[in-house]
């Protein structure tokens, strides 16, 4: 699903984002990426959605070499990838339904299709009954679940979650992770960036540890070791 070959990202003034990353993630995998802050986890996510360009190496997603992707091709790439970011919030003046629908509208989906796909996305995150609420009337965990529902609107084969549990207590955090597991069960490849050792340890899935822009460990059933 995702193949990274000798991938490096050096920012201006020689700041290392990532250095010589080789990584292969298979379809339907659930991969956690851990590491201290400033070790290049978000850089990796940004490279995958072509928000940043690699300095060296090659990125292939689902067989598509996006290393030198054209600007006009980026929307097509992003419609195949769901993203859940910490700072990628809901629009406060829109209801839950409208927030999810917005993502479909701006990509040119028809109103009829939107009426069908938004409820089904909300059903996956168990929020069908709160479709008419505004974000401020939802808990932090519920808000994050709406964000996940929004990221599912194009039925992505790959879901990238960058610290989706960052601001949540452990109960809500666990709830989010359960959602991600469920989505993974439907067949979507998940890349989860997190700080939360409790979660990583309970997952018993593949864990990749980054340090200073390099992979220092990649374990099939890993633990959070820092």
């Amino acid at each position: 699903m995702v193949k990274l070959e000798n991938l490096s990202k050096i920012y201006q003034q020689d700041i290392v984002g990532l250095r010589n990353i080789n990584l292969h993630i298979k379809p339907r995998e659930f991969v956690s990426i851990v590491g201290q802050s400033g070790t290049g986890k978000s850089t990796l996510i940004k490279l995958l959605i072509a928000e940043e360009r690699p300095t060296e190496g090659r990125i292939t997603i689902g067989g598509w070499d996006i290393t030198n992707i054209k600007r006009s091709q980026i929307p097509a790439l992003r419609r195949q990838i769901g993203v859940v970011f910490q700072d990628f919030k809901l629009l406060p003046q829109k209801t839950v339904f409208e927030n999810v629908a917005f993502a479909a509208q701006v990509c040119g989906e028809s109103n009829r299709k939107i009426k069908r796909i938004v409820p089904s996305a909300l059903r996956i995150v168990d929020l069908e009954d709160k479709a008419d609420r505004y974000p401020r009337h939802l808990s932090g965990g519920e808000q994050q679940r709406v964000v996940i529902a929004r990221s599912l609107i194009h039925r992505p084969k790959l879901l990238l979650a960058d610290e989706p549990t960052g601001n949540l207590d452990s109960f809500n955090a666990q709830e989010i992770v359960d959602m991600l597991l469920r989505i993974n069960d439907f067949g979507t490849t998940i890349i989860l960036v997190t700080h939360n050792s409790e979660i990583v340890n309970s997952l018993k899935k593949r864990v990749i540890t980054l340090d200073n822009g390099e992979i220092i460990s990649d374990k099939k059933c890993g633990k959070y070791t820092l």
Binding site: P75, V83, L91, R150
Partner: peptide
């Protein structure tokens, strides 16, 4: 800016933005 950020991340085309 929030809408634009969302539009970009969910794959709205540049002309639509």
């Amino acid at each position: 800016r929030s809408e634009i950020k969302i539009m970009k991340l969910v794959g709205a085309s540049n002309w639509f933005i």
